[in-house]
Design a protein around this nucleic acid. Sequence first.
DNA 1: CTGTTAGCGCGTTCAC
DNA 2: GTGAACGCGCTAACAG
Lengths: 342, 342
Amino acid sequence: MKPTMSDVARAAGVSAMTVSNVLTGRRRVGAATRARVQQAAADLGYELNLTARHLRAGRTDTVALVVPHFDHPYYGELAARLARLLAADGRHLVVEQTGASRQAELAAVGQARWQLYDGVLLSVVGMSAADVADLETSVPLVLLGEQEMPARWDHVRMDNVAGARLATAHLLATGSRRVAIVGGTDPAPEGGMMPARTAGWSAAHTDAGTVPAPELLVPAPSDPFHGRDAVRRLLREGIAFDAVFAVTDTLATGVLAGLAEAGLRVPQDVQVVGFDNLATSELTVPALTTVDPAHEQMAADALRLLDRLGTGRSGVGAPDGPPAEHVTAPVRLIPRATTRPA
Amino acid sequence: MKPTMSDVARAAGVSAMTVSNVLTGRRRVGAATRARVQQAAADLGYELNLTARHLRAGRTDTVALVVPHFDHPYYGELAARLARLLAADGRHLVVEQTGASRQAELAAVGQARWQLYDGVLLSVVGMSAADVADLETSVPLVLLGEQEMPARWDHVRMDNVAGARLATAHLLATGSRRVAIVGGTDPAPEGGMMPARTAGWSAAHTDAGTVPAPELLVPAPSDPFHGRDAVRRLLREGIAFDAVFAVTDTLATGVLAGLAEAGLRVPQDVQVVGFDNLATSELTVPALTTVDPAHEQMAADALRLLDRLGTGRSGVGAPDGPPAEHVTAPVRLIPRATTRPA
DNA sequence: CTGTTAGCGCGTTCAC
DNA sequence: GTGAACGCGCTAACAG
């Protein structure tokens, strides 16, 4: 069996409490005693049992980021930023995956697993607003994601409509007339990332006094292969277009691949704009013009909201707690080489 | 306070034990009793305390993948594969980050945190073989990574030398004569990913009866920006080259960006091969020729080795346990559009 | 400065 | 089929 604190205590001729005090430094301990304890701990190869400490303390100093997919660069970057912020504070970040489907997200939420964390940042993708409204959890929870969310939960997102509008306006201002939207969808009233960005695409057209042709709206899940497929489909169906607004940089990567394989030049024949400003988007060929949300600010806000909820003492959507806050991070356009100069 | 099992027991007029039995299903419970317990649990909003269960059970049904960086696509893909395999088994994967430096990795290892998991898969990047040899941990541990590793630990990696040799041979066979290696380094005897791949690059030249010019070896950390910088530097210094072997796909992305900005055509002017076959490598412009390690097999092997170690009962590098196993996954070349047909 | 007591919430063990 | 007692390992609270 692994040695426990009592074992160390016995070996050092003190009580378990004293061992604890030496190890945590929470109370003053005589130099001689301390030395004996440390020696004994080293001799026995003692290792603290964190599970026991957590049970006792009711705290784990760990925050979880729950994302739909481990292998999506957007979440990887988010995780890295959050980890940096938490580390500055002596806390840890762990990342868990749901699987992106509504089913999977609901299952993840149902798990008592979240109790293992001081707080959870949940990236919502599959669940509907109604699902979210019904959530029950006793752990401090902050929602991330571009959906419209029920008022009762803290929520951080970016300004999707404004960003899409900027992107599309830029395409129209630089001479494009037929701007396809890859990843577009019916701008449903209750939001979601794609509907919001589609709304921005529409709005920019309205601003410019035009109306986009409906066949320029190409639905696609946010992954690069579907971006390529979307371009192939536009070409196959003979739909004319001189620009693409890809609703995510991930899609844009595939769009660029699709245009390249068709021999279309970017930006001369077709301009392209993405959204998200992933770290690697600067290195696509050509370098991707995109919309940059305030990533650092979003990460910081998410943690601020989480910390504000305390260590879970206040219970679910507690009426005694502060009212939920909904933060929308600003966006800006970063012109690069997939668009012509304005 | 949150309700505990005793609270539920009292409400249902039974003992805590019975509640536990109802919830876990480990023992038979009368239908009527069971109904009352479930009702009481629901009424009180009872939630199982996992920390307590873990303390009691000494098991968490959770495996940790510890990686250098959350925001590197290679690890994201690995995590996704592992999560899928574990989920099939009712277990969970969490991902933690070290920070890639030797310091950070050592600190991570020292953390008692790992006790929170039934097993740990550690991606080693910063630590030396000597550091790894000194590791002490009471948790089942399997090492991942391309370094040479001490015999005492289970270790899964890919065949770096063979892969690099394949890649370079392909470049030489398709007419290139000056093959730069981006991410190359002195092939140190004790290994590491870059030395091993550099050795493969050398070996391919030897096979072809040539010797690569030393100035074609360009060191670079594995990130796309350094890939671009490497190309810029080659061009700035006037070093002639007609092919690049980028030791990772990540670097290759940057290499392609660097070549594009210089107006060099791929593969006509310069051929490029990467290594790792990331999911998105097919979508670079042009599509990247690369070396594909047996990803699925590596993930499966890692878990097999971990499970073989049991639930940590056997202690550190236990002499009573099975001998450590070192698995080297095979590699194959995937020719795409950054190289000419053979 | 150090020890004693007690309990965090659950589940194994043994009794009925 | 159900319950009582005890302990997993650690640490507050209260002695002294």
